[in-house]
């Protein structure tokens, strides 16, 4: 044990009522989910600034539950990403599984929790963006007048406009609900390492229903680690209003429109991030062009028959 370094007290509540009594006694405690974010900070250990009280959420049984019906799947916030893909592989949208598998192997995803990946200050995964495409919502438990209240929020509303977490004090995300809607086109692309090269990384998740020359119900989320994520109707409309296939000029104007929307929210994007964003959009447009051309030729062939 290092001299002069205080060993934090670890509280391990086994249910939410025990958790609420602990949080009343120790309001400034650190919540500990999987620990991958806290332990990867350079000042984690040894440190004099470490919080003296840690609440380990892993023993709270309510936070490990998983239930589903035809329309939604509901996960406790302490469900690990590994469990999420193995329990939900057959029902969850394909893009969500791809996103989790992209984060890392089983060794890493078994430690990362769903709640933890949504609540870290830095975006070590692009999960929030991808979840927002499926209108995910979160149950937030918070203390008010010494009592614990809970309320469901659309996931997009727990982040501010620039993608920063905006939860009330002493709040805890207890459950995450995902709508099980399948869209015909789902694509997740990441460039750069979200753990090692945060300044230059970017990921884009896009879903929609391509139909002839239209791209209906387009939803797009762009995530920049250590900055935040952007997912709004303006971005969606850029894709929804386009008529595919696009020529080079039209494609460039879409890239420019998206980049200017992104730069307005995140003015400090690095040059490489901008280039990578443009590259990914180009890749998606080319994909949608191919899709539109194959559908068009298929429809033409049908009418000829």
């Amino acid at each position: 044990m290092l001299e002069g370094l205080r060993s934090p007290n670890i509280h391990t509540p086994v249910n939410l009522s025990e958790f609420s009594s602990i949080i009343q006694h120790y309001p400034t405690s650190t919540y500990w989910a999987g620990g991958t974010y806290i332990m990867s900070r350079s000042d984690y250990y040894p440190s004099n600034t470490t919080n003296d009280e840690i609440i380990f959420l892993g023993s709270i049984e309510e936070l490990h539950r998983f239930q589903r019906n035809d329309r939604i799947a509901e996960f406790g916030s302490m469900v690990s990403l590994y469990d999420l893909i193995y329990t939900g592989r057959s029902i969850l949208p394909k893009i969500l599984i791809e996103n989790i598998q992209d984060i890392g192997g089983n060794i890493v995803t078994a430690r990362m929790t769903l709640g933890g990946s949504l609540c870290t200050r830095e975006f070590r995964s692009s999960l929030c963006g991808t979840l927002s495409l499926f209108d995910a919502s979160c149950e937030v438990k918070y203390m008010k007048k010494k009592r614990m209240h809970s309320k469901w929020f659309p996931m997009i509303s727990i982040y501010d406009k620039s993608g920063k977490l905006n939860l009330p004090d002493k709040a805890l995300i207890s459950r995450i609900r995902v709508n099980l809607m399948e869209r015909n086109y789902q694509r997740f692309i990441r460039k750069g390492d979200f753990f090692l090269d945060q300044e230059n990384s970017v990921s884009i998740a896009i879903t929609g229903n391509p139909e002839q020359d239209n791209f209906n119900d387009a939803r797009i989320a762009i995530t920049y680690p250590n900055k935040g994520f952007i997912s709004n109707h303006d971005l969606d409309n850029i894709f929804s209003s386009a008529r595919f296939p696009l020529d080079q000029d039209e494609s460039k104007s879409i890239e420019d429109a998206i980049l200017s929307a992104v730069s307005a929210i995140f003015p400090s994007l690095s040059k490489l991030q901008k280039t990578r964003t443009r590259g990914i959009i180009k890749e998606i447009i080319s994909d949608l062009n191919i899709n539109a051309l194959t559908t068009a030729s298929f429809d033409e062939a049908k009418t000829n028959i």
Partner: peptide, 27 residues
């Protein structure tokens, strides 16, 4: 590596591979 996931500190915890830099003492 301070949790930067280099993978060189792998150990088996209850038979499962984990990165030891991401496991706190209380666990």
């Amino acid at each position: 590596c301070n949790g930067q996931m280099c993978g060189f500190c792998t150990v088996l915890m209850n038979g499962k591979a984990v990165l030891s830099c991401l496991i706190p003492a209380f666990e």
